[in-house]
Structure formats: C-alpha cells, structure tokens
Design a protein around this nucleic acid. Sequence first.
DNA 1: GTCTATAACTAGATAGAC
DNA 2: GTCTATCTAGTTATAGAC
Lengths: 252, 252
Amino acid sequence: MDARTPTAARRLADIRRPKKRPTRANGDATRNKILDAAERLFAEHGYTAVSMRSITAEAGVNVAAIHFHFASKEALFEAIFNRRVQPINAARLAGLRGAQQDGGHQVVELANVLQAFVAPHLEAAKGFDAGSIVLLQFMTRAAAEPDKSIQAVLRKEFDPVWVELTAAVRRALPDASDEAIGWGLFFTLGALYFINPSRGWLANLTRNKCNAADTEAAMRYLVPFLTAGLQGLTKHPPVTKSKQLRPKRARK
Amino acid sequence: MDARTPTAARRLADIRRPKKRPTRANGDATRNKILDAAERLFAEHGYTAVSMRSITAEAGVNVAAIHFHFASKEALFEAIFNRRVQPINAARLAGLRGAQQDGGHQVVELANVLQAFVAPHLEAAKGFDAGSIVLLQFMTRAAAEPDKSIQAVLRKEFDPVWVELTAAVRRALPDASDEAIGWGLFFTLGALYFINPSRGWLANLTRNKCNAADTEAAMRYLVPFLTAGLQGLTKHPPVTKSKQLRPKRARK
DNA sequence: GTCTATAACTAGATAGAC
DNA sequence: GTCTATCTAGTTATAGAC
C-alpha cells in the first residue's frame, strides 16, 4: 500500500535529526504507555483479539519496543494484570482478616466478610473516569478469558484469597455445609465479575435505570444480595432435588 | 516445510480414484460434523482464538467445505448458537408465562419464576456426557465473548426473554424498585453464566466438594440462592451507602 | 532505548478442477 | 459437494542500524 522508499525517507531524517538520545526516564515512559494502551485494548476486545501491532499503534510506540520491555504478549498481560490485581487482593486479604477479628471475638457478620471481598474490586474502579472503567472491564474480561496460560496467571493470584474467603464465610455461617458454601461463593464470583461496563447490557436491558459503571450502586445492591443469598442456602438446606422440577424419574 | 509436488500427488490420486460422487446426504453429514467440531472448539478456546483451519482439522473436512456450508466464521457461530439457544429461550418464555398464570391468579412465587429462567439453560446440559458439558461451556463462553458482532447475535435472542423475566419478577416482588430488580437480575445472569465446567475452578477451589458439571446440584443451590438474594434486596432497601465502608477520609 | 526492515508464519476467504 | 492451490492481509518476533 505504501509506495514510499523507506531508505530515502530515512536519509532525510538522518540529516535533520536533533539527536534525541534515549534515556532511562524515556524508557519508563514508553513502558507505561504500552501498559496503559494494552490494558485499554485487552479490556475492550479481549486477549486473543488484540494484536501487538494494535497495542503499539494505540500507545504511539514502535513494534519492537513492546518486545524490548516485555518479552512476549503473555508476559505483557501478566504485567498489566499483576499491576492491578495484587493491590486488590492484598486489600481483600487484609479486609477478610480484619472482618474475622472484629471486636476480638469469633462472631463474624456475613455482610462484612462479603464486603471485604467485593469492595476492593469495585472500589479500584471508582470515580467514573475512563481509566477506572477500563480497569473493571479489564478484570472482568480477564476472568472470562479462555486462554489456559491466562487462567493460570489468574489462579496464582486468586487462590489464597479464596481460601481466606471460604474460611471467613464458614465462621459466619457455622450451619452451612461445605458444598453450600462452595456453590454460594461460586455464584458470588459470577455476579461480581459479570459487572462489566463495556458491554452496555445492564443499561440497555434496564432502559438506563441501572448503570454498570456506577460502582457505588453496584456495591449497595451486591452486598445485600449476596448476603441474603448465602443465608438462604443455610436456612432452606436443599437436601433433595427442587420440588417442582420435573418429577419424572420414578426411581430414587 | 512440505517438499512434495502437489501436482504429481494429484496425478497419482487421479489414477486410482474410486470416483466417490458427492451426495446430498453427504453434504448434510459434513455440515453437522462442522457444527459439532466448531461448537467443541469455541467452547474450549473462545471465538477469536479458534481458526477456521483448526475447525476443519477437528471435523476432518476440507478448509473450503466450511465456506461452502456457512458463508463466514461469524455465520458459522450464529448457526451453532441458534441451534442451541433458540430451544432454550423458547422453553424459558413458555415457563415464565406459565409461572405467571399458576392457578389463574396473579400471585407469582419468585422461586418458580427464577426456576423457569434458570432451568432450561442447565437442563439442556444434563446427563454428564461430554456433549452436554460442551453445551454449557459453549454458552458460557458466548456470554463472555467480547466481539461486538457476537454480542449482537446474543442480544437478539436474549432480549425478549429479559423483558418477560423482568415483568414476572416485578409481579412476584411488588415492593421492589426497578433499580433493585435490574441489579438483582444482572447478578442472576452473572451467577448463572459463570457455571462453566471447562475451567476446573469450582472443583479445584472446593477440593472436589462441588462439580460445575453437576447441573442437578447447580440448580438445587442456585434457585434458593437467587430467590433469597432478590428478596433480600426488597427487605433491606439500600437507601444510603453501605454502613461500614471506609469511614476514613480524615484528610491529612 | 528506539526504530526500520523483514523473517517466518497464520488468518479468513475463494477460484476452479473434479 | 469436495478439494487443491493460492490470494491477501494479518500475526508474533527479531536482527541490526542508530
């Protein structure tokens, strides 16, 4: 498509170059430009759909720079992910431990536990500016990413949080079975990570009554919803199969 | 890589060909092989990560066959999606209308409404055989697909169901605000479509106490969870921001 | 540290022989 | 209906000039 002779263009540039030498600070700036641009694109289109070229175009840097600063596409993803997720998970762990030691006794209020888990994720995206919305999108997309190596990156950071969360819920709901807690927290995960401002789903479906970018509202509704849901699993223990669903099987 | 001369290979084949002529039934078989293989691959790796070539390899057919039977990759996706989703959504609509007319009066039990929405999705994948698990995976992945054209395919089928679902919940919870119902059903969607057997998450995280492929168990726990959660949103209307969330802001 | 140029490969799609 | 061969345009990645 491009008929320019690059060598000629280079020769011209050579003549009038102000000899701007690369510096360390310069490298850091490029690195951050790449991180920000890649986060934006991964958030919007998903990991596999985004090419290295589109990232460099968005960041306004060269194709090779990305390979210089990050060895590969996967390493780049991990760098973005950890930059965002490590503080969130650290806040979760601190919050969960705090919730269990409230007042020095063992009584743990379920709502506080769930709040400790949910809030750091949503709060990281508070403020309604473009950057914070991108953050929510990015992490939601990451949670849904099929790529095996991406899932490994996620699990590595998330597993310790899950252990702590399960233990905290167990104390708050001493009568609940392990199975009930497992399913309940799985649903919790799904509800939390489905909050994705990028697809206009929620706004469209509710005719703008709700806005997925409104993290304050999400938190206000999510915590009571999850608390009641988990308590509902203990109050009405589902021992047998649901009452009205096709009682067709004759044998037990 | 390949040093064979294709023309020579063809000439050999020409000689000993049994002249197997293509038939109509033959075409249908190929079409179905492509649909099944593509569904399997989309379920496992996601839409963008799967190439037409990998589909034809999995199906054991030629690269051109897929373009003959389906015009494009997107059209192929739509064909797979509709084959699975239209019966599910039809069942949902029938169930939701049935739940609202139970006994001829207006009293609608929330659990029945949610059951009518959730069951067709999970029941379509009942049986524990590989094929039914693929189905759940496929639809979960589809729900999380970032690609805009894929999202459009989803929305087209899903919107009428959402309208009916919202109306049914509104009748079952006359005191709930539109905003509360909107958020609550959004969380419902997240919890339901996060049930993905492919990522071993649930089994790993719960040390095999729960199995995401066990759709009977999922249904037993999901409906009570959602029912209690939605009711919880009406019983404790979240007027102001949650009580214990960082009352700091002391400003240094 | 940054960039040009290009290697090495894969993508979706199609024309035309059979 | 099926297949080979091939097109165009895209991909990640790297060597080497500056």
